[in-house]
Design a binder for these strands. Sequence first.
RNA 1: GCCGGGGUGGUGAAAUUGGUAGACGCGCUGGACUCAAAAUCCAGUGGGAGCAAUCCCUUGCGGGUUCGAGUCCCGCCCCCGGCACCA
Length: 886
Amino acid sequence: MSSQADQSAPASRYDFAALEAKWRPYWDELGLYRTGNDPAKPKKYILDFFPYPSGEGLSVGHCRNYVPTDVISRYYRMRNFNVLHPIGWDAFGLPAENAAIKLKTNPAKLIAKYSANYKRQMNLIAASYDWDREINSSSPEYYRWTQWIFLLLYHSWYDRRRDQARPITELEAELERSGTQELKLPAEVPALTSTQWRAMSLAERRRYLSNFRLAYRAASAVNWDPVEKTVLANEEVIDGRGWRSGALVERKTLQQWFFRITAYAERLLADLDTIDWPESIKAMQRNWIGRSEGAEVTFKTTAGDLVIFTTRPDTLWGATFMVLAPEHPFVPQLTTAAQRSHVAAYVAAAKEKSEQTRTAETRDKTGVFTGSYALNPVNQEQIPIWIADYVLLEYGTGAIMAVPAHDQRDFEFARKFDLPIRIVIEPPGQTLRPEDMTEAWPHEGVMVNSAHFDGTPASEAVSKVIAWLEQTGKGSGRVLYKMRDWLISRQRYWGTPIPIVHTEAFGEVPVAPENLPVLLPEVPNYEPTETGESPLAAIDSFVNVTLPDGTPGRRETDTMGTFACSSWYFLRFASPREDQAPFDRQAVNYWLPIDLYVGGAEHAVMHLLYSRFWTKVLYDRGLVPFVEPFKKLRNQGMLLSYDNQKMSKSRGNVITPDAVAAVHGVDALRVYILFMGPFEAETKWEEAGVKGASRFLQRFWALARDLATATFVEPSGEREREFRRMLHATIKRVTHDLEDFAFNTAIAALMELLNFFYDCRRGQTVVGVTAGLWREGLEVFTRLLSPIAPFLAEEVWQEMLGHRGECVQRLPWLEYDEAALAVAEINVVIQVNGKLRGQLTVPVAIDEERLKQAALASTQIKKFVEGKAIKKVIVVPRKLVNIVVG
RNA sequence: GCCGGGGUGGUGAAAUUGGUAGACGCGCUGGACUCAAAAUCCAGUGGGAGCAAUCCCUUGCGGGUUCGAGUCCCGCCCCCGGCACCA
C-alpha cells in the first residue's frame, strides 16, 4: 500500500501503513502508555505471562494473548484508572542456552537480540506496554533479588502449629529452650531435646535445621533429563519426558536443592476457592496437589514397625497380605533365605525399569513373596508380606495393606498369586461372596467380618475406625498429598546462581544479603556435563571463595531453574528500578494483587503453582499483604494454523503478525484476532477472516470520508430517536462485553451499528437524521473502536471528524444513557401451545390484560385457536403471550 | 478409570433469570457499476414441501420436568484438555 494518494479523486481505500507510521510516534511522544500515577485514581494491574524470548519471534498465536490484554488496558485507561501494563523477559533458561551453544555465542547476546525482536513485534501490533518498566530476569539487578528471596526461604521454616513460615532464628531459639517437644514435627524428622541440640556442632545444627528450612539441600531420587543434561522438577516431567526436550527422563540419586512447597499444600488447595480462575486450571492444581484423607496404621514385622497409609481404614479387617515397594528399606531384612534369590532378581529388575516403562507397560501385576509376615493390629492376624512395583516408594509410606475384596489392584494381585480374598464391606441388604467376584467391590457399604464394628454403616465407618485406632494406639488419622517438594537446582550455566557456599567446618553457609548478587561468571565455555555436575564447577575463580572470617569454601555450582525467576517477577514491575529491596513495599501494596493475568494453560501446575507458593511465603514473612497474586486468570485459546495444526517452525505453517500487518494492517489484525471466536476457545486461522475485519474497517473509514460531502434529507424525530437508541445500545453492549472478555460480540455490536449507519444512507444521502446527529454517531463509533483499532480511530477522530490535537484515547470512555434506550413500542410474540404463531407491536407500557386481549384478538392465531378450548393464557410482559389450547 | 471443558447452518460462531434459535463475520447465489476483472454497493442464504400465502422439521442421542427447553433434571454417545497402579 503506498502513501501517495490520488490527488484528483477521493481515495477509495485508506492507507493503513501511512496511519501507523503517523500515529505511533505521536502516542510515544504523548506518553500514552506510561503507567498512570495519579494517587486519586483507582488502579488496574493487567499482566501477560512473562514471555521467554526465542529466535522464532512472535506468531499471530501470541497476539491472541497480547491484543486482548492491550484492549483491556486501553479501556481501563479511558475509564480513568491508573493502569500498570508492563512486560519483561524471562531470559534465563535452557532454550537460550542451548541455542547459544549451537550458534557458538553467548546466551546474554542472544536474549538481547531475541527480546529486541519481540519488542519490535509488540510495538508493531500496538501492544501498549510501559517500556520504562521493562525487566530482564538474567540481569544482575534482577537476579540479585531472586537470590535474596532464595535466602529468605533458606532462612525460613514452616511452623505447623501456626500454619505459617517464620524466621529460622525463632526455631533455633525454641530448640535451645525446649527442643522439639512443643513442635508439630513431621514424621520423618527426628525429635530432639534441648540438651541434644546444645551438644551439636554448628555443622550438625545446620544439617538438622535443613529438615525445616523452606529451601534445603537433600539427596533424593530425581528426574534426570539426558538431553538437557540436568535434573528437572516433577512439574516439568510430562508423560515421563522432559517438558521441553521430550527426552525420557532417568532416575538418578543426587544432592539437590528443593523448596518445601509441600508445607503449603493445604493452603494452596484451600485458597483456590477464593480466586477467579478457569475451572480447568483449578482442577489441575487440585489434582496435582492430590489430597487424600485416611489413616496411618502400624503393622509389626521382624524388621520393625511397618507403617502403612490407607484411605479405607474401614477395610482393615479385610487385609489378607501386605505389599512393599521394591525399594522399601525393610525389604532386605524381611527377605528370608529361601526367598532371597527371587527377591533380589525382582528388585534388580524393578530398578532397571524407568518410571516410564514401569507405568507404560501393561498393568499386569507382578510381585514376589518375601517369606515374612506382618501382624495386623486390628485382629492379630499374621499376613504375608510381598513386594511389587505397583506400590510406589514416593507416595505414602511405600507400603500398603492389601484388601483384595475392596481394591481392584489388590484383587488382581490376589487372583494372580492365589492369595485369600475376604469380604468386609457389603452393600446394605446384600451379600457378597469371594468366589463370585470378577472384580473388587470398592464402594462404601456396611462393615462385616470386622469384629465389634460389624453393622457400622458407610457414613460412619471411616471416622469411627480412625477414632478407635487413635484410642488404642494402633494408628491415627492422616492427610496425604501427592505433590512433592519443588526441585530447583539445575546443572546448567544459564541461570541464577544459588547463593550458598559449602565449607568443611560449618557445612553450607548462606551468602550474606549485602554480598549479593553472586554474579554468574562470563565465560566462553559453559557446555553441560554428563556427570550431573554443573559447568560452573569447572570455573575455579567462581568456585573457590574465602569467607570473611578466612574460612575457605566452595560455591554451590548449581543454578536455579527459571521458574524461580518467574515466581516473583510480577512484584518487580511495581518498582522495577528499586535497588534496596526486591520491591518497594508501598508500590506493591498499591498495585498488587494483579487484577487480570493472561497466558496459556500450559503453566497450570508450574509457574501458576510456584508463584502462589512464593506469594504465601512472602505473606507469612510480612513482605506482602495478600496471599494470592493473581485475582483473575484467563487462558487464551490456542490458535491453530490454516492446516488445523499447531503453528511450528518445523511444519512451516507459522503466521507472523508482521506478514499479516503488511498486507491488511495492524488494526485489521487486531480486529480479526478479537473477532475470530470466544477468547478462551481454540480457533483456526482463516485468511478470509482478516479480509472481513479489513472490510469492516474500510467501510467505517469510507463513511467518515464521505462526511464532508454527504447531504441530509427528511429528518424525522422518530428516526432520530431510533438512531440515538442504537448509539446508546451499542455503548452499553461494547462496555459490558469488554468487561466480560467477550471481544467477539463487542465487535459484532460495532458491526451492527455500522450496518445501521449504512441503512441510513442512500448513496451519498443520509435519510432521516440531521448532520449533527450523524456526526455524533460517527464520533461514538470512533471512540468505541479506539481501544480495538487505535490507528484508524485516531485518524478518523483527529483528521476526519476535525478534532486535531485531541488524542481520542485520552477522552473518557462513553457512558450510555438509559433514557435514550427507552422505546415506545415493542414486539411481542404470540405462541399457541408454545409454538410461534404471530407477532404484535404494542406500546411498551401496555398492561397484561390488554396485551392478553390483543393477542387473543389477533387474526394470525385464529386458525390455531378456532374450535378449541382455551385452557390457559400465559403473559410474559414485554416478551410474549402463550395461548394454551386443548 | 478419575477430574475439567465441550457438541448449535456449508463455515467461525451468537443467544441475561427457561421466553421469536442461528445475531455478527466468512463463504456462496443473484443484481448494479466496469470493455473486463478486482474492489465496492444492493438483495438473498438452516433443512424440507409448495406457484404462493403458508406449513413441517431442526441446537450429539433417548427420556423427563414445564404453558414453553440450546438453556433445567435423568440415562447414554462422541470430541478436546489434564491426571493416572497415588493405596
